[in-house]
């Protein structure tokens, strides 16, 4: 059981970057908004302690960029947007992910 948990954790970590890029491609978001949006998917739920280092890494890699924007309910917030390089990376990763999912569905059949 513990091995299955560890494997699940690694699987989630592996797709997290893809999930964040996907959300940011849909619309610019700020850090805690990403945490909230991902928490709607329990298997992808993360904390602020995970999302900010991830955003910093994506920014260093040139896949996202950030801009401060006024907020109607408090101090300004920093919004993250996918760069053209980020879109290319997302497209490639999404294609690969789709292939893997299709292959696994073929292998595992109709197993729940």
């Amino acid at each position: 059981m513990r091995e299955a948990d560890a494997w699940g954790s690694q699987l989630r970590k592996g797709v997290l970057e893809l999930a964040v890029l996907g959300l940011l491609e849909a619309e610019p978001r700020y850090g805690s908004q990403l945490v909230d949006d991902l928490s709607a998917h329990p298997d992808l739920a993360i904390t602020a302690g995970t999302v900010y280092p991830l955003l910093a890494r994506l920014a260093r890699a040139g896949l996202v960029t950030s801009t401060w924007r006024e907020s109607p309910v408090g101090p300004p917030r920093k919004y993250y947007t996918v760069t053209p390089a980020g879109r290319r990376s997302l497209a490639e990763s999404a294609r690969l992910f789709g292939s893997v999912v299709a292959a696994m569905e073929t292998i595992l059949g109709g197993r729940p």
């Binding site: 805690s32 908004q33 909230d36 602020a48 302690g49 955003l55 309910v73 408090g74 920093k78 993250y80």
Partner: peptide, 13 residues
Amino acid sequence: EVHPPFTGGRGRG
């Protein structure tokens, strides 16, 4: 406030 407050390490962007 519509999002978690910025305290205790659960920062907001």
